[in-house]
């Protein structure tokens, strides 16, 4: 019954809420524009739905996984799944015109696949080959699509933007590993997607717990963190090293801090 109510609530949210009202106060308007979240009412409804799914399904699953599976095995599984993502990262690095990254990713993939038992052992990190992730959302950003589009909260998958959402779609479609798996059986491809989703959630578990415990508005904290992190990644891709500095400034006079 509870679930029906959530789903119903979600649908209502989608239909009724539409767009957030633009504030008229100039200061609040600045914040509104920084947030880049015109679909906030809908996003918040999806976020609430996600929290339910996390609390009742995914979080218990992660706790069970962590309890049942020894640490070494967990690392092996994470390494194996990460290794399978290297081909699509490599394609993106190439599309971004970043030959150094392309080489690093190719080297990592070759070394771990051949000598690391199909990627179970991460020898590349031991050899100090950097871990590089390149997705199609970034590729679009590098190609000059500077505007990420509004912030979006997707059911189960969580935060993204229109640009990155499209990126995920393209990556899934273009992933050579998926093509190979799909030709064997579509369930292999689905299984891989499910396992990746689970591992990604496992990776964010502690952060989510931290946010829910410490934040007065965990939706806003997640949005802020997601956006800062994207800014950093894309800034780095464009070679903007100082981007952290430029991102914000303490905007009050020095002497005001003294009593």
């Amino acid at each position: 019954m509870r679930k029906e109510i959530i789903v119903l609530g979600l649908l209502f949210g989608l239909i009724l809420s539409g767009c957030a009202v633009k504030p008229t106060d100039p200061d609040e308007l600045v914040i509104y524009e920084q947030n880049n979240d015109p679909l906030e009412p809908m996003n918040r409804a999806v976020y609430k739905f996600n929290q339910g799914a996390y609390d009742y399904v995914l979080k218990p699953a992660v706790r069970g996984y962590r309890k049942a599976v020894p640490n070494v095995v967990q690392t092996g599984i994470a390494n194996f799944m990460a290794n399978l993502k290297q081909p699509v990262y490599m394609i993106n690095a190439l599309l971004q015109g970043d030959f150094k990254a392309t080489g690093d990713i190719a080297g990592r993939f070759a070394l771990n696949s051949v000598f690391g038992l199909a990627g179970i052992f991460d020898l590349a990190t031991r050899e100090e080959i950097p871990v590089i992730k390149r997705d199609f959302g970034q590729t679009l950003a590098v190609w000059g699509i500077k505007n990420s589009g509004p912030y979006l909260m997707i059911p189960i998958l969580g935060p993204t933007t229109v640009r990155d959402g499209i990126g995920v779609g393209v990556d899934t479609f273009a992933d050579p590993v998926d093509w190979i798996l799909y030709r064997q059986s579509k369930w292999l491809a689905y299984g891989r997607a499910g396992a990746n989703g689970f591992l990604q959630f496992e990776n964010k578990y502690d952060l989510l717990e931290d946010m829910e415990k410490n934040s007065t508005d965990s939706y806003a904290t997640m949005r802020s963190m997601y956006q800062q992190n994207c800014q950093k990644e894309i800034g780095e891709l464009r070679g903007e090293v100082q981007e952290v500095q430029a991102a914000y400034d303490y905007d009050f006079p020095d002497d005001e801090e003294d009593e």
Partner: peptide, 10 residues
């Protein structure tokens, strides 16, 4: 920055 965005939302 995270605190600032959180508190302004609250």
């Amino acid at each position: 920055m995270s605190y600032r965005n959180e508190y302004s939302a609250f």
